[in-house]
Design a binder for these strands. Structure first.
Lengths: 231, 231
DNA sequence: AAAACAATGCTTGTATACAAGTGGAACAAA
DNA sequence: TTTGTTCCACTTGTATACAAGCATTGTTTT
């Protein structure tokens, strides 16, 4: 038998569980025990506990001492606050980028948009396309932050907004047409940046963030057990 | 002997260590071992490890497997990005508050300002006054976020910006006069909110965030060993 | 029948033993 | 002296045993 590594085990478990939670394979509210997870991956409780703690700090797990560990319910109030932060920060960063845009950056953005265009024209299943587009969408936003010199800001945001990703995956039941709307938002945002049209830029950024959610928020009521009760 | 509690131990150690790090009693770059810490508080390595992991996720510790654990150096690039986030988010939140301000909220802010005023008029040592004012300053900002209905946004910010608090403590060598300037900023910010003077409000918020740092940033060079090299 | 209660099996929290990687110190060879 | 090497002390990573809290079930008592 190969000797087991003494680094990276908990990190691997963390990544695996996080993906399962974000993709709703571990649904909100479901229980998950340290012992079972350890047995499943043929490791001890220790690295599993480390992974659990990390996921708890991101708000994806809820550890109740001596009772059990549960995948956290989606809190729509939290989602709302996350959207607010993303809106405000993205508006500011995009504006900064528009102010200092140069030709090489413009080229890079054009390239990303073209990639996205091709993605939408490729035939594949709706679910697969949805996931691929979310990744591409994230790449697009991340690239804009990076070009604006605000990569760390994006990283901070992401550490605190895992909930947002999960909610996005949950709502992602839209077909090619819906995704096309998101792509068109990107094009509009890019046009505003390159034309330095700051007012419209802010509007498009807000619209891009909220519109998809607003359009499909009714599906929330198809899985009320996934959500924390809100009044 | 009393039976040991089976909850809260790691949390207590976490809080204790965090305070020591933020107050620079555990200086940046210094090493801290799990075994020593466990012995110091007469507990086992397990809760200490939990606390270490939490502090690492906040960027206050750097755990190098099989080598050691070190209090992280202050990264001025990170500080810069944190300041950017706080600037953008505070400007937005304060503006929101100004839009919807009512009399009872105005009363609450006046109260906080008066408390701060009294604090500055009380005789005590410079260092103690500095720490007390930082707490009072945080309370003031927190209250404004709360009044704007954005308490969670502030909480998110704080989980990610522990570095900022440490840096602030480090720079806090200013006397009563410097603190008075911060207090006057608060008064100006409040006036802009109550008069709905949005343009000046943003300026004052930015000024309030950056001015203190800019005025005393020279002390950085008195402890270069605390900082990550930057180019 | 209903209510109080004790036993049991689950959970996570803690303590401790062991594994394995790292770096420096002591030491040997050139 | 310099260089290379071996060893050792120290670190964190992992595995596992035990402690203790909670909930459910089944039993006993009223």
């Amino acid at each position: 038998m190969y000797t087991k590594k003494h680094t990276g085990t908990s990190e691997a478990v963390y990544q695996k569980l996080k993906q399962q939670i974000l993709h709703l394979e571990l649904p909100p509210g479901s229980s998950i025990s340290e012992i079972d997870t350890a047995a499943k991956y043929d490791i001890s409780r220790t690295p599993v506990r480390d992974a659990f703690k990390m996921l708890e700090s991101e708000g994806l797990l809820e550890i109740r001492p001596h009772i059990g560990t549960f995948v956290s319910l989606i809190d729509l109030n939290t989602i709302s606050d996350i959207l607010y932060m993303r809106e405000v920060l993205e508006q500011a960063v995009m504006k900064d980028l528009a102010v200092s845009l140069d030709k090489s950056q413009e080229f890079r953005i054009r390239l990303l948009l073209q990639q996205q265009r091709e993605l939408l024209d490729t035939e594949r299943s709706a679910e697969e396309l949805g996931r691929a587009f979310i990744i591409s969408d994230n790449d697009f936003h991340y690239a804009l932050f990076e070009l604006a010199g605000k990569k760390n800001v994006m990283d901070f945001l992401n550490t605190v907004t895992s909930q947002y990703e999960r909610f996005r995956t949950f709502l992602n039941l839209g077909g090619r047409e819906e995704l096309m709307l998101l792509y068109e938002d990107h094009v509009k945002i890019w046009e505003c940046i390159s034309h330095k049209d700051y007012d419209k830029l802010s509007d498009h950024v807000s619209h891009h963030l909220y519109d998809g959610f607003n359009r499909s928020i009714d599906v929330v009521y198809k899985h009320p057990e996934y959500f924390k009760s809100f009044t």
